[in-house]
Design a protein around this nucleic acid. Structure first.
Length: 477
RNA sequence: GCUUCUUUAGCUCAGCUGGUUAGAGCAACUGACUGUUAAUCAGUAGGUCCUUGGUUCGAGCCCAAGAAGGAGCGCCA
């Protein structure tokens, strides 16, 4: 008798055969004539119902098995007499791996997400979080599959980086120095030559610069790894430690980059719809229940599944920054002075503006391109009109999910731009050299993995789509 | 970092204008009942009212400081 997971038994178990199941008790109920246990082993959102004849077991056993306990059960797979399921396991043997004491925090009822965040060690045992984690896995796998099938190479860019000029924000220092006794230079500054790497080092905020080096050799690469930003960002869509996918492609112009981003997102959503049906059905219902609790005007127009299907069957709207500004200036909220922040060419778009474009004007994902040079990173390819070949992909409910650009491939232009924004040339000599030795047009982007998971699962707080979130003042677990 | 809200039983939340012994549902426990589906019914037990300080005859409630959490904003993916 082979141990198989509950998913397999529910999907293709044969009635009348012997089975072994092991898992954690979700609920139990029953009495003298019959006992019921709902068991889950994480392989699927669905529980398997265990039926036990009390005459065959010690009564104390059933009393001890409470929500959260882990048990081994062997028995026969039978057709269910009850209504909620087609098959169930008639127990012949029940063994307890571990009981759950009465202070087990997860009850067979709905808990708040805030509460579960404080129980991050146990929340994967809930239906919602196990569903999210399975979807998260599927999306990770789909990312590798998408790029592998397209002939991209997975490049491992460094986690520890010596360049502090990646321009993407505050960094976490990496050091082995004794913080209570820092080696000093004569002028009183810290002597990093004494540190492990002999220089200042930090955790990466982006693998892009190294990714470009890979693309200039392998042609098509992508990275998929952890990324660290020490900004004091307290929002539902920022983490200090998150995962990012960064494709980088030689000979890609901005238009190719947009095509790739759109195809990529649609592929991932399609993959989840095909491979995570049970979990998405559950989250769709959950989402609908949440929406019902909201005020009428705050309710989303589409349900989760509806939204996902919409995104895979409609082209993304593409427009330039300049066109976006024009649309915003003609918009009702602008006319009625409802925007908090100014709208004029040259200023960065605020979330309220992006949200208007995505959720009100177009009601679908939007790709914005060609932003003013001044508000974008030094490495983006310069146009002749004071803009750079940048692109941001905005999606409903989340905002910016992808940021990317065609890269500046002209050595002089890149060097001058870096100089203008005050980047230390010496620390990126290797990056600049790619433009000296066989430079080529190339493009790439970064996709925030957790923001993708948010979009696919319909969760509204990024802390609920990563197993152990790292945010300001929170590194428990 | 800024704005704002919240913190009362294991969980979700009531608690009136400051007034005697702080409540409910669920969970736990005891029992009854039942092929049940977050089972049902009856009962029992369960409290540092976030912390510290203050005002008051009297503070869960008012004031101050702090802590933790949520929402919104900024920075971004």
């Amino acid at each position: 008798m082979k141990t198989v997971c509950i998913k397999e038994i529910l999907e293709k178990g044969t009635i009348g055969t012997s089975v072994i199941v092991r898992g954690w008790v979700r609920t139990k109920r029953g009495g003298k004539p019959v006992w019921f246990i709902d068991l889950n082993d994480g392989s699927t959102i669905n529980n398997i119902q265990i039926v036990a004849d009390p005459l065959r077991f010690d009564a104390e056993l059933f009393g001890n098995i409470t929500t959260g306990a882990c048990v081994f059960i062997s028995g026969e797979l039978i057709a269910s007499q009850g209504g909620g399921q087609s098959v169930e396991v008639e127990a012949q043997k029940i063994e307890v791996y571990g009981l759950a004491s009465s202070d087990y925090p997860l009850q067979p009822k709905r808990h708040s997400l805030e509460f579960l965040r404080e129980k991050a060690h146990l929340r994967p045992r809930t239906a919602t979080f196990s569903a999210i984690l399975r979807i998260r896995h599927s999306l990770s796998f789909a990312i590798h599959k998408f790029y592998n099938d397209k002939g991209f190479f997975y490049l491992h860019t460094p986690i520890i980086t010596g360049s502090d000029c990646e321009g993407a924000g505050e960094m976490f220092r990496v050091t082995t120095m004794d913080m209570n006794n820092l080696p000093k230079n004569e002028d009183g500054s810290i002597n990093y030559k004494e540190d492990f790497f002999g220089k200042e080092t930090n955790l990466t905020v982006s693998g892009q610069l190294e990714g470009e080096l890979g693309a200039m050799a392998l042609g098509k690469i992508y990275t998929f790894g952890p990324t660290f930003r020490s900004e004091n960002s307290n929002t539902a869509r920022h983490l200090a430690e998150f995962w990012m996918i960064e494709p980088e492609v030689a000979f890609f112009e901005l238009e190719d980059n947009m095509d790739l981003a759109e195809e990529f997102l649609q592929y991932l959503v399609k993959y989840a719809l095909e491979h995570c049906k049970d979990d998405l059905d559950f989250l769709d219902k959950r989402n609908a229940d949440e929406e019902k609790m909201k005020k009428k005007e705050d309710q989303a127009e589409m349900g989760l599944l509806e939204r996902l299907n919409f995104v895979i069957s409609n082209r993304f709207e593409r427009l330039t920054y300049t066109e976006a500004i024009e649309i915003l200036k003609k918009s009702k909220p602008f006319q009625k002075k409802q925007f908090k922040f100014p709208v004029e060419w040259g200023v960065d778009l605020q979330s309220e503006h992006e949200r208007y474009l995505v959720e009100k004007e177009f009601k679908k994902p939007v790709i914005l391109t060609n932003y003013p040079t001044a508000i974008k990173s030094f490495y983006m390819k310069q146009n002749d009109d004071g803009t750079v070949r940048a692109m941001d992909v905005l999606i409903p409910g989340i905002g910016e999910i992808i940021g990317g650009s065609q890269r500046e491939d002209n050595y002089e232009k890149l060097k001058n731009r870096a100089l203008e924004v005050g980047i230390d040339q010496e620390s990126i000599w290797w990056y600049l050299e790619t433009r000296k030795f066989g430079t080529a047009p190339h493009s790439g982007f970064g996709l925030g993995f957790e923001r993708l998971v948010m979009f696919v699962t319909g969760m509204s707080n990024i802390r609920d789509v990563i197993p152990f979130p790292r945010t300001p003042k929170n590194a428990e677990f």
